[in-house]
Design a protein around this nucleic acid. Structure first.
Length: 594
RNA sequence: GGCCCCGUGGUGUAGCCUGGUCUAACACGCCACCCUGUCAAGGUGGAGAUCGUCGGUUCAAAUCCGAUCGGGGUCGCCA
């Protein structure tokens, strides 16, 4: 049926004069009573078909019945259009197919939303008819871009000696990390597989097996609440390498990601390699966040010294209580009104738990603002010097615990960057953030947990702090950050059993528990483990960034909604009781709402 | 679980703040007829909405109040 098929988007002036057969969906029809024009659409584009009742009465009869989204086959002659009929808005606008035959391959109901235009439609409805949504130009483009990105990543990884190894989808539940999706075992009632949150342990075992350079476009599942950039199942570029340090891993990714990125012409962009590096400490100090958006300046400055001795009690008391004071300088911020600052900006700062936002304007005649009177002239000068404020600028300050100060100013900085358009939207800043802390304390429980994971190697200089001051220990974990978003993370792993044991001890995991949870990994390491490290990054998020969309569902063919349901197939759904019985599973009665 | 936003014909919106003139408007789509060079074709006519649901206030509710359901965003969560 498809021999000699002419794709709708392809014919050009040079093709005129040939017979052609085209297949596609009706994008639009214009029925003049006599002549009928049908815009025939496939994934390559749109071709105008003319059906003239004098030439082809049969075809005309068929075309008269046709409606939007019907599937048609046309046979005819590709003709040049008369000059006055050329449509310059369309790639195929110089030609048209003069139909001799028209075959209706399928009729279509009136679609529930327009397929032939990029209208905003309720997302639930789009998901219910995802096949129609995917038929639209935008998702066609997104998913084709994604496929190309994946293909190019595979090609680039293979090119530098990486081997793609598939790891299992049904594995042992991991005790740490996100909530697992469970799969019941029929042969072992009461026992469960888990779907992988990542192939972490398998890829490390591949290193023990001597595979040396592993990669996979790995599907991962995590049963956590969803966000605009988070789906319960997602795809990672997952890599692991033996006999390497950070430089080798960065170099591999600085080959693969830019190759794929540039092949896809994402944001017209070439990427500059190597990607800049910054330690976690530098990121926190200067940007207030561990995923800095380096597309614009407005760095955080430390004002603790000035604040300590100032007459502004809010500042002085914060410092006396062990807190810090930092500020950012908003260039040209003289246009920020008191209500701008006390309204939206303070709201942003409060969102990060800050109690308020202090502000000073530097004008030609000196410093202004409600708190200016609490500072001595030399203190104001010091603030100006530290923040780099000049006449016409505004300084915003927060005093609190270091964590709150950084988070609040970091959030205000990002907000202002966006609101004041401080960067060029086509710009792509990729950077490595290195030397993350090894441990962090849970706000809720107060317990110490692994910031990355328990197999992350300790920074060589900090080994001695492992027992005395674990929270000060730096790890050899790193993130890749793009325009202020984290898209992936990795680490050099621990392969020294003594260090591993000390890390587990710091986490409060004793030898017995360790054997129970990760015994197979620790045992494998006893048989000759190469030093190794790796990284994993979200393909979905990279493609989002590349295409400039904020919604992860726009780069996934069949995504779930925010409740984790798929409205098209209506999953999840109850199953037959017999199926449950076979698995030895009973359903508890749901707790009635009070 | 908390907070914020949204819910009006098939689709997208207006109307809601300031209740009555809403017997709910507009565009697209749909149906019929007319129309031989359009390309967001055009013309004429038509069908299609108890305004998410329930309750309350009122002489009167799309409009005000409460609850609830659905969707989205976000915080928690995501080693």
């Amino acid at each position: 049926m498809s021999t000699d098929r002419t794709y709708c988007g392809t014919p050009r002036a040079a093709d005129a004069g040939a017979r052609a057969t085209a297949f596609g969906w009706v994008d639009r029809r214009r029925d003049h009573g006599g002549l009928i024009f049908i815009d025939l659409r496939d994934h390559t584009g749109i071709l105008q078909v003319v059906i003239d009742p004098n030439d082809a009465p049969e075809a005309h009869r068929a075309a008269r019945e046709a409606r939007l989204e019907w599937v048609l086959r046309f046979e005819g002659m590709l003709n040049m259009r008369a000059p006055e009929n050329v449509n310059p808005k369309r790639d195929t606008g110089e030609v048209e197919l003069r139909a001799s035959e028209c075959t209706v391959l399928a009729v279509a109901k009136t679609p529930p939303f327009p397929v032939n235009e990029d209208a905003d439609v309720d997302e639930q409805l789009r998901l219910r008819h995802r096949y129609l949504d995917l038929r639209r130009v935008r998702l066609q483009r997104n998913l084709r871009a994604r496929a190309k990105f994946s293909t190019e990543l595979r090609r680039a990884m293979s090119e530098i000696g990486f081997l793609e190894i598939e790891t299992p989808m049904m594995i042992r539940a991991t005790p740490e990390g996100a909530r697992d999706y469970l799969v019941p075992s029929r042969l072992f009632p009461g026992s469960f597989y888990a779907l992988p949150q990542s192939p972490q342990l398998y890829k490390q075992l591949s290193m023990v097996a001597g595979f040396d350079r592993y990669f996979q476009l790995a599907h991962c599942m995590r049963d956590e609440d969803l966000r605009a950039d988070r789906q319960p199942e997602f795809t990672q570029l997952d890599i692991e390498m033996s006999f390497v340090d950070e430089d080798d891993i960065f170099a591999a990714l600085e080959h693969a990601i830019p190759s794929a990125w540039e092949a896809c012409e994402f944001r017209g962009g070439r990427l500059t390699v190597p990607f800049p590096r910054m330690t976690w400490r530098q990121a926190m100090d200067a940007y207030g966040v561990d995923k800095p958006d380096t597309r614009f300046e407005m760095l955080l400055s430390d004002l603790t010294a000035v604040a300590r001795t100032s007459g502004f009690r809010v500042f002085a008391e914060a410092v006396a209580g062990g807190g810090i004071v930092k500020g950012i300088c908003v260039k040209g911020g003289d246009d920020l009104s008191r209500s701008d600052i006390e309204g939206p900006l303070t709201e942003v700062a409060r969102g990060a738990k800050a109690r308020g936002l202090a502000y000073l304007w530097k004008r030609a005649d000196g410093w202004h603002g409600a708190i200016a009177k609490f500072f001595a002239p030399e203190e104001l000068d010091a603030i100006g010097t530290a923040t780099g404020a000049e006449t016409g600028d505004c300084v915003l300050m927060v005093a609190d615990r270091p964590g709150v100060v950084n988070a609040a100013l970091g959030a205000v900085r990002n907000h202002l960057g966006r609101a004041r358009a401080l960067y060029d939207d086509t710009r792509i800043d990729m950077l490595w953030v290195t030397e993350f802390p090894m441990f962090e304390r849970s706000e809720e429980t107060g317990d110490i947990g692994a910031a990355h994971h328990p197999f992350t190697m300790i920074h060589a200089d900090d080994l001695d702090l492992l027992e005395s001051d674990p929270l000060a220990v730096r790890s050899r974990a790193y993130d890749l950050v793009v325009n202020g978003r984290e898209i992936g993370s990795g680490s050099i792993r621990i392969t020294d059993p003594a260090i591993q044991q000390r890390v587990l001890a710091a986490l409060g995991i004793d030898a017995e528990e360790a054997r129970r949870k990760f015994g197979f990994l620790l045992e494998a390491f006893e048989y000759g483990v190469p030093p190794h490290g790796g990284w994993a990054g979200g393909i979905d998020r990279m493609v989002m960034e590349g295409l400039g969309t904020d919604n992860i569902r726009d780069v996934i063919a069949f995504p779930k909604n925010q409740q984790g349901q798929e409205p098209m197939t209506d999953a999840p759904a109850p199953v037959d009781p017999a199926q449950l019985r076979e698995l030895g599973i009973g359903i508890l009665p749901t707790t009635p709402k009070p």
